[in-house]
């Protein structure tokens, strides 16, 4: 269980009743994109226990600063300035060190820099909407951004996404791979959103809502939101059942 030795145990089984099911008809796109047959369950092999790693050398100086990483020199993105920080741990509470965390979001008006986004809120010439960082040896990460705006989307006739930031996290084994979304404390749109409501359990949804943390704000600059992320835990390999000779 030491940090010094790479861990090679297989991962805890995923609790599929905690995660959203594949088929959630109120989120219409899921209807034709949800597998209908049972998943085949199988304990991890080496192919799942292992996973890619990324070195700190891939990370540029502004990669975790969405206020500036797309802005013209001397300018910055428009919006409410925020810090998002937290810790990536596994289901045992153990920090996940040196893992890549990527994030993307709409601008302050709720518009994405993407040719498929037709919402008439304007693009901000100083905001790209992507960032990334690698957790430290204890699993901590942080980035700076602006608070994304809510936006309408074609599902029901009047569905709005709450303000949110998309997250992609690797972990150390390929089956820890996770994509999720962070929401902001106090946003009334959270509980109306069909995508949020693909998650059956209210307690699970609350795990995606980042609280405002006044103690971590930068006075006269940016407010802070804390978002901890939990990846699948790894079984300890104190005693492994192996066939003799292996």
């Amino acid at each position: 269980m030491s940090n010094l030795k790479p861990e090679t145990g297989s991962f805890f089984q995923r609790d599929r009743e905690w995660h959203p099911p594949a088929l959630t008809p109120w989120y219409k796109t899921s209807v034709l994109r949800s597998p209908q047959k049972s998943l085949i369950s199988m304990d991890n092999t080496i192919s799942e226990i292992t996973g890619p790693r990324f070195g700190h050398n891939i990370i540029g100086e502004l990669d975790n600063d969405l206020v500036h990483n797309f802005a013209r020199p001397g300018e910055s993105a428009i919006g409410e300035r925020i810090i998002v920080y937290g810790r990536v741990v596994d289901e045992r509470g153990k920090g996940v060190a040196n893992t890549l965390v990527e994030f993307w979001q709409a601008n302050a008006g709720g518009r994405y820099r993407h040719k498929k986004d037709q919402y008439f809120a304007p693009l901000d010439p100083n905001f790209g909407g992507c960032g990334r960082t690698i957790t430290d040896e204890n699993g901590f990460y942080t980035f700076r951004s602006i608070k994304p705006g809510p936006y309408p989307w074609p599902n029901g006739v009047n569905d709005w996404r709450p303000s949110h930031i998309h997250f992609s996290i690797f972990g150390h084994g390929f089956v820890q791979r996770l994509i999720t979304q962070m929401y902001f404390e106090g946003d009334p749109l959270i509980w109306k959103c069909p995508i949020v409501r693909t998650i059956p359990d209210r307690a699970a949804i609350e795990r995606l809502i980042a609280p405002l943390d006044m103690e971590a704000t930068i006075p006269m600059d940016a407010r802070a939101y804390k978002f901890d992320i939990v990846l699948r835990g790894r079984r300890s390999t104190f005693f492994e059942n192996r066939k003799e000779g292996n």
């Binding site: 899921s30 289901e91 993307w104 993407h114 992609s168 795990r207 990846l231």
Partner: peptide, 17 residues
């Protein structure tokens, strides 16, 4: 033990990230 963070769709703009 802490339960895993629940998954959410990557959405239509996954490319941005």
């Amino acid at each position: 033990r802490i339960k895993e963070t629940p998954s959410q769709t990557a959405g239509p703009y996954v490319h941005i990230g």
